[in-house]
Structures are given as C-alpha cells and as structure tokens.
Amino acid sequence: MAILELCGVTMSYGSGRARKAALADVSLRIAEGAFALLQGPSGAGKSTLLKLILAMERPEHGTIRVADRDIARLRKSSIPYLRRNVGAVFQDFKLLSDATPRENVALALQVLGLPRAHVDARARKALADVELDPDTRRPVRCLSGGEQQRVAIARALAGEPAILLADEPTGNLDPRLTREILELLGSVCQRGTTVLLATHDPLVHEHAAASHVLALTDGRLVADSEGLARALVAAPTPESTVEPIGVPA
C-alpha cells in the first residue's frame, strides 16, 4: 500500500518572465515502510517536493495523497493535523537552541495536548531511541551537529508519525556523523516508519540502505527505482528503470 502518492504535481515560483518551474508533472508512489532516497542536484526541486508534502506550499496542479488523503486542497485549519502525522528534519535542525533536548522533543508532544507525565515519558523514550541522554540539562546549542540532528529526529518521531521527511539531514555533518545519522534513519525505517530522505550528497546515496531511489533534475522526475535497492543503482540491469544520476563511481 502506498503511504505517499503524487500525481501530476506541478509547481513554480515567481510570476511573469521571472516564473521558474520548481516541479513539472511529477508522479510517484512510496510504499508504506519504505526507505526512499530522493536525490538530485541543488535546485532540482527536492525541497519543494518535501514542502508540498508538509503543506508548506500548494501545488498548481496535481494531487498529493498522504495515507490516502488528498492534502493538496487541505483547509488551512487542517494542516497542523497533517503535520502531526508527517515528521520532518532539516539540514539546519530547526531546534530551540536555548532549550534542552527533552524540552525540544516535548514541544512536539505538547501540541497534541498530552498530559505532562505522558509528554515527559514519551520525550525520554524518543531521545533514548536515538541514543541520547534524556536527562541532559545542556541546551542543544552546546551539542555537536550529530547530536542536534538526533534531537531533531527524536522530535520528529516523538508523535509517532506515519512518514518521516528528511531534507538534507546530513548537510552540516562530517562523513562519520553522516554515516551515524543514516544508520539511525535506517533503524527508524526498520521500526516501521516510512522515510523519505532528500539529498544531493553522493555519500548519502552510498551509505543509505534505501529501498526506493528517486531522482529529480530541473523539477522533473528522471528516475524511479520503486522496489530496487542501492545495489541495483550501483550496477544497473537492463530491466532496471533506474538512471544512475548522482551515483559516485
């Protein structure tokens, strides 16, 4: 069953002669429980695609279905409820820098209106799941980049979303931390959460245990290996529809 389905999605920025297409007639399906890798160079439309799934932007044409619900025409008042079901992590972490990791994670649970004791218990568990000390009193600005990204992942997963979107989550990290974060995302996927990871980094493609690889160039989906693993991308077979775009030699 598809957890995420885009059909004929078109989106552009600007107007008149300055108008620039960000996505052109993009259609894709991501199965529940998949680890999908969305790759492409900067400006290819990866972030725009994730913003559309988070309802931060609206498509000009096409439908976007998350858990079988069309979100492209979602009412504004319903958007927060969608976001509770779609976790997101970003390159710049988007954390409250003066708050502790537990306070940051708790924020995602407080919006659900859960009692304080539940919030505390679930925040602790989410931090423990990403191998961070739930009791640390240090503000997140004092943590390393890798630890900050773990806090962001813990926050995104605390509400037990159906899908986790990761927009260049390793963009600010060195190769060792990149591998750690990719392993963590892999284990998140193994626990049942669908992961959609957008990156332009070949290292990510090399180390991510992706079950589904997609490639965007100039807003167009140029490759989709639904069901194919990274190994197929590295050595494509004649039957494979995957184009080895951005794959390191």
């Binding site: 927060p80 954390l95 995602a108």
Partner: peptide, 16 residues
C-alpha cells in the same frame, strides 16, 4: 519567529 516556525512544523494549531 524561529520558535513559531518550529511550533507550526510540529503541528501546532494557530491557537496553540
């Protein structure tokens, strides 16, 4: 504004 952006991101309603 960063805090507001985060709250929106994690599903905070307008009232929240």
């Amino acid at each position: 504004r960063a805090e507001i952006q985060i709250l929106r991101l994690v599903g905070g309603t307008a009232a929240f």
